[in-house]
Computed example of a mutant assay.
Amino acid sequence: MKTLPTLRQLRYLVTVAETHHFGQAAEICAVTQSTLSAGIQELEGLLGTRLIERRSRRQVVFTLLGEDIVERARALLADAASLVDAAQAGAQPLVGDLRLGVIPTIGPYVMPRLVRQLREGYPDLKLFLREEQSATLMEMLNAGRLDVVLMALPYAVGELPRVEVGEEDVVVAMPDGHPLTELESVPLDRLDQETMLMLEDGHCLRDHAMEACRLARSRGNEAFQATSLSTLIQMVAGGIGLTLVPRIAVPVEARPGSGVTVRPLQGARAARTLALLWRPASPRARDYRLLATVIEIVTGEALAEADTVLSNLLEQGVLI
């Protein structure tokens, strides 16, 4: 029977990779430095290869194979932790630690509702949130550093298990008093005549919005790229140009007094589908599906609030 590495050995290896220091890693693992070093040497002997180049006490360099083994070890440790959580939970859903990643164009508009709902309904769940762009979230999920991610599709996620929790379009945001505020909805071809402000490359909302509005990837009238929707909104309020925002963001980013007016777009496709994803064969898949149900509820509430904001202002004869 093949001899396998122990979880303790893998934990030593991953901790050294995270700290790049044997002493600090030993302190985190609550063992002596000699014990930690011996554990890693045993792992290297078991695998038959060198994982770390010990150049000095202060310089720890991983071999290429060592870096690959670290990522695999992270995933194994995460799955082992999830297995323990699932066993301890038994018939009790959503308890223990759960590491959730979310993209920045969803997080501010869904997470506050979600956290409140989970605290009320599942008080034994300890939720850790990480907000990153889609590419980083996928790396962290595959490496076992996140349990689930909430992101927007389409995106290259392979065959990962997923539950779709909502679908939304984008609206155009413009400064108060802009000529297009006189319209109840904005024709797509009018955007070609405006200075556009967009999120920088790497934000999937940029691609989703441009695809939904049939805009070219390289726009001659694109004057500014930002790292966040809030920055774009401030630029719009300052009269610099127009931008595209997801409908779910309307109550936060285009609230009264923001200096920004929003309008629906004529003929735009649905921009994106929100989905919760996790690794295949996860022992907590049942919990993740339940979490997706809760997210679907709070996402629906957020979208309904956005629609109410729009329709109420229209009924009052004040187009925001």
Rank of each mutant, 00 (worst) to 15 (best):
Q316A: 15
P187C: 02
I52N: 04
E27P: 01
G267F: 07
V95L: 13
R255M: 05
V115S: 09
Q225E: 13
I320G: 14
R272A: 13
Q9K: 09
R8L: 11
V298K: 02
G158C: 10
A304K: 12
R11N: 05
L291W: 05
G144F: 01
L291T: 04
L183G: 00
L46W: 03
L205C: 03
R219V: 06
A268G: 06
V14W: 06
D307C: 04
L205H: 06
A212W: 01
Y109K: 05
S37N: 07
A143T: 06
A26W: 05
L291C: 09
L118I: 05
A212H: 00
L118N: 01
T243F: 05
P283L: 09
S282D: 15
E159R: 13
G48D: 04
T273S: 13
L146M: 07
V115W: 00
Q33L: 11
D169Y: 00
G259F: 01
L291H: 05
E211F: 07
T308F: 14
T6Y: 00
R8P: 05
Y109L: 08
A17K: 04
A81I: 01
D201H: 07
E200W: 06
P251N: 06
R190E: 01
A226D: 09
H208K: 09
R247M: 11
L153W: 03
H20T: 00
M151G: 12
L153H: 08
P187Q: 03
P104Y: 00
P187K: 01
A304N: 08
I240K: 12
I295V: 15
P104K: 02
L313S: 10
P112Y: 00
Y109V: 10
V31H: 02
G96M: 10
W278A: 10
A275S: 13
R255D: 08
I248P: 03
S228N: 04
